[in-house]
Design a protein around this nucleic acid. Structure first.
Length: 490
RNA sequence: GCCGCGUUCGUCUAGCCUGGUCCAGGACGCCGGCUUUUCACGCCGGUAACACGGGUUCAAAUCCCGUACGCGGUACCA
């Protein structure tokens, strides 16, 4: 038995699909809290809803945690003292506690049909202490009738028997004192007719048995917490400390949904961030800041430093809007921190996916040039296609502003000069010298050639330093593109 | 509808518990300048908020009450 004051927290996702970004943040805060206090962080799979179960989801969750570096001490794949860590494997356990609650007078059997329940719902009322007397259950039926039904193998559920006129109070680490009037709490189903528990039962049984000290979860659970408290009390258990995290919302308001992924370009699943080339450290760093702050003006944290700085007291209570710009800003710092070699490895798959090819040396050159100019790795490709193929059009505003009457002649002459440069001498210094010499001879500013050259070679008016750009694009391509621009733009 | 939770710049937030140091600080974004005879990076500067109404107090972003608004819950889903 671990000592009761040891910090033990869990991330308890339901395997219903890809791990949501909000789920990852919940996992992160649990992880930070556990590590900060030298405690344990466990992963528990809450697969008690067979109809929503998705085969691949469990792996997806574990992959996401691994990708982001949120290592857990106990879980379905790593085992632990309290195994199994999949609720579907613990079904008998929950049933026995449900029966214990019935014996304690805190729960009861119910035999209502779908129709009965639908009728109740149609009246706009819930199954609770006001309506339970008109339903078919062990409160309204005689013991013999109940026993007969059970013996006959009839379908039944076990419901929580919420006490009357009680105020259920608990202390939330983030919100302070929270209280609910028991008259407002419904008689939650604890054990379903398929024999599996609902979240509410499974959650408190496991949290108790697994010696969880702090339940850190999303705010959507706040309203069910009084039910949980009632169960802890009925079983004579000490409830864990609760902390309900603010929800992550869409910039439009409301929950961050799949729809936002499309309309606002905000990915909602962890796998999406992975595919879109975000740095896991950057994502985690940003997520930590979404609802928590260190109390200093620091914003960029490695995971270990976050652990050091983390505390639940500094987690806000209000909902937070996801800000993609800020994530990108955080991410860019992690892109810059990469060695050029690492960046080459990171970007290669995106280069290949785009159907381009480039040697390591060439990619190295490109990365050096653009590392400080991208926020997310794939932008090295998507924002700089001219490294891989000739531009097929010229940015209109750039042409407007930079392509002058004399541009064609100057660029044409510049191309001529570059023709005579040996392939192996075609580096940034040489193309710069050639350009500046020409500018002097023609008595024009260097910009009179720089701008048209950039436009011709990259199709755009902005990008990395133009001489490095020309050198990296290469002699033949530069000349070809310059001649073509002279032709096209006149 | 009912219940719960929340409300400081467009956004993330500091400050609120322990009222005065806050005509409210930082960051992202945006705008401008410097730098670069190019683009960016960088640096400098600017923009912009205490939801509203009462109350308590010599004094309120900070305490109390109410209203509005937002979010969550209201399933044999989690």
């Amino acid at each position: 038995m671990a000592s009761s004051d040891r910090v033990r927290v869990r991330f308890a996702p339901s395997p219903t699909g890809h791990l949501h970004i909000g789920g990852l943040r919940t996992a992160l805060y649990n992880y930070l809290f556990a590590r900060k206090h030298g405690g344990d962080f466990l992963l528990r799979i809450e697969d008690t809803d067979q109809s929503r179960y998705v085969e691949t989801a469990e792996d997806d969750i574990m992959d996401a945690l691994q990708w982001t570096g949120l290592t857990y001490d106990e879980g379905p794949d790593v085992g632990g003292e309290h195994a199994p860590y999949r609720q579907s494997k613990r079904a008998d356990l929950y049933r026995s506690y449900a029966e214990k609650l019935v014996e304690a007078g805190a729960a009861y059997y119910a035999f209502d049909t779908e129709e009965d329940l639908a009728a109740l719902r149609d009246e706009g009322v819930t199954y609770d202490l006001h309506t339970r007397h008109q339903m078919r259950n062990s409160i309204t039926m005689s013991d013999d009738q109940v026993q007969d039904r059970l013996d006959a193998g009839a379908d039944y559920v076990i419901r929580l028997k919420v006490p009357e006129r009680e105020t259920v109070r608990f202390e939330d680490e983030i919100r302070g004192a929270v209280s609910f009037d028991s008259d407002e709490i419904d008689d939650q189903v604890l054990l379903k007719s398929d024999g599996l528990p609902t979240y509410h039962l499974a959650n408190i049984v496991d949290d108790h048995l697994m010696e969880i000290s702090h339940v850190i979860r999303g705010e959507e659970w706040l309203s069910s917490t009084p039910k949980h408290v009632l169960m802890y009390e009925a079983l004579g258990w000490t409830p864990p400390t609760f902390a309900h995290l603010p929800l992550i919302m869409s910039p439009n308001g409301g929950k961050l949904s799949k729809r936002d992924a499309n309309t606002l370009g905000i990915p909602v699943y962890v796998t999406d961030y992975q595919e879109e080339g975000y740095e896991p450290e950057g994502l985690v760093n940003y997520l930590a800041l979404l609802g928590w702050n260190p109390g200093t003006e620091e914003e960029l944290f490695a995971l270990d430093d976050m652990v050091e700085a983390f505390s639940l007291e500094r987690v806000g209570a209000s909902g937070v809007q996801f800000d993609l710009d800020k994530l990108r800003w955080v991410n860019e710092h992690y892109v810059r921190a990469l060695s050029v070699e690492a960046l080459v490895d990171r970007v290669r798959p995106y280069v290949e996916d785009a159907g381009y090819s480039a040697s390591d040396d060439r990619l190295h050159e490109i990365c050096e040039l653009v590392q400080e100019r991208v926020q997310v790795v794939p932008e090295i490709v998507t924002d700089n296609r001219y490294f891989f193929e000739d531009p097929d059009e010229y940015e209109e505003a750039g042409v407007e502003k930079r392509w002058k009457d004399a541009s064609a002649d100057l660029l044409s002459t510049y191309a001529d000069r570059l023709e005579s440069v040996e392939e192996e001498d075609f580096d940034a210094d040489t193309v710069e010298t050639e350009l500046r010499n020409l500018a002097d001879e023609e008595d024009v500013g260097a910009g009179a050639i720089i701008h048209p050259a950039r436009l011709a070679v990259s199709g755009r008016s902005y990008g990395p330093g133009v001489f490095g750009l020309l050198a990296t694009v290469g002699k033949q391509a530069c000349i070809r593109r310059m001649r073509r621009a002279v032709e096209t733009l006149g």
